[in-house]
Amino acid sequence: MIITIFSLVTTTSCTKDNFPILVGPAVTDPISVTDIDGNVYPVSKICDKFWMTENLKTTRYNDGTVIPTNLNNNNWSATTAGAYGFYADLAANNTTYGKLYNWYAAHNPKLAPVGWHVATSAEWNQLVACLSGSSVAGGKMKSTSALWSAPNTGADNSSGFSGLPAGWKSTTGNYSLLGDAAYFWSFDERNATQGEYLKLVNDFASTATNGATKTFGYSVRCIRD
C-alpha cells in the first residue's frame, strides 16, 4: 500500500518536491481611506486604532444619500436631520478644515466610509488616556501648523492626529473660532438636546469633553471598524 502525504506550505517559493504552495493575502496597515465622494484621507495608527488624520469632507452618506447643506440660519437652527456647512462658506476652508456637521449627521452610521465609523465617546476617552491624560493630550493631538493662533500651547503632534482649528458653526448658523479651537463630535448622545464632543484649543495643552446642542456644526473624525 502506498501512502501519499501532502505538505501544506505557506511560502513564496516552490519546494523541491513541487508540492502545492498556498500564499495568503498580505496583511498591511491602511495608509489612507476614501469616502464616497472620492476624498482621500491619510490614516495613522494611534494607540492601537486606525484614525483618519484629516477632518471628514463628504457631502453624502455612504449609501449615496445627499446630506443637506446651504440651510438658511432659521432652518439650520430648527433642523433635526443631518446637515453641514463649512467655515464662512468658503471653499478654501472646506479644503483645509473639512465640513462642520451637526450632531444628527455625526450620529448617522452611514456618515463614515464603509468599514469606518464616527469616533465614540469611549474611543475619544481611550485616546486621551493613552496620550497620558487630558492635561497633556491636546498638545499631542494638535498640529504644529501656523493655522493655529499663537500660542499653540503644548503642540507637538506627537500622536500624529494632526488636529486643526476648524472652529464651529453655531446653533444660529454663524461661524466662530477659526484658528482658535477644534471641536469634534462624538457619535454618542448626552441627552435629548445635546451630543457629546471633544475640544482642543490654542492656548491649552489639555483636552476637554462636554455636551453641546445638536445643531452646532463641528468637525468629525472617523476610526476603522
Rank of each mutant, 00 (worst) to 15 (best):
residue 75 N to K: 14
residue 75 N to R: 14
residue 75 N to T: 15
residue 75 N to V: 13
residue 76 W to D: 02
residue 76 W to G: 03
residue 78 A to Y: 08
residue 78 A to T: 09
residue 78 A to C: 09
residue 79 T to D: 11
residue 79 T to K: 03
residue 79 T to N: 08
residue 79 T to Q: 06
residue 80 T to C: 10
residue 81 A to F: 11
residue 82 G to Q: 01
residue 82 G to D: 05
residue 82 G to V: 04
residue 83 A to E: 00
residue 84 Y to W: 12
residue 84 Y to K: 02
residue 86 F to Q: 03
residue 86 F to C: 10
residue 87 Y to V: 00
residue 88 A to W: 12
residue 90 L to M: 14
residue 91 A to Q: 15
residue 91 A to R: 12
residue 92 A to M: 12
residue 92 A to H: 10
residue 92 A to P: 03
residue 96 T to D: 13
residue 96 T to A: 13
residue 96 T to H: 04
residue 97 Y to N: 03
residue 97 Y to E: 06
residue 97 Y to C: 01
residue 98 G to A: 12
residue 98 G to E: 08
residue 98 G to F: 04
residue 99 K to F: 00
residue 99 K to T: 00
residue 99 K to M: 05
residue 101 Y to D: 05
residue 101 Y to C: 09
residue 102 N to S: 07
residue 104 Y to A: 10
residue 106 A to K: 06
residue 107 H to T: 07
residue 107 H to A: 15
residue 108 N to Y: 02
residue 109 P to Q: 09
residue 111 L to S: 02
residue 111 L to A: 02
residue 111 L to H: 01
residue 111 L to R: 01
residue 111 L to E: 02
residue 111 L to I: 12
residue 111 L to W: 00
residue 113 P to D: 11
residue 114 V to E: 14
residue 114 V to A: 15
residue 115 G to Q: 10
residue 115 G to A: 05
residue 116 W to I: 05
residue 116 W to S: 02
residue 116 W to L: 05
residue 116 W to F: 03
residue 116 W to E: 08
residue 116 W to D: 03
residue 119 A to Q: 00
residue 119 A to C: 10
residue 119 A to T: 03
residue 120 T to R: 13
residue 121 S to P: 04
residue 122 A to N: 12
residue 122 A to Q: 12
residue 122 A to M: 09
residue 123 E to P: 09
residue 123 E to N: 11
residue 123 E to H: 10
residue 125 N to V: 07
residue 125 N to E: 14
residue 125 N to P: 05
residue 126 Q to T: 15
residue 128 V to K: 02
residue 128 V to A: 10
residue 128 V to R: 00
residue 129 A to C: 05
residue 129 A to I: 03
residue 129 A to T: 13
residue 129 A to V: 01
residue 130 C to A: 14
residue 131 L to C: 07
residue 131 L to W: 04
residue 132 S to G: 07
residue 132 S to M: 08
residue 132 S to P: 03
residue 134 S to E: 14
residue 135 S to V: 13
residue 135 S to F: 09
residue 136 V to G: 05
residue 136 V to P: 04
residue 137 A to N: 04
residue 138 G to Y: 00
residue 139 G to W: 03
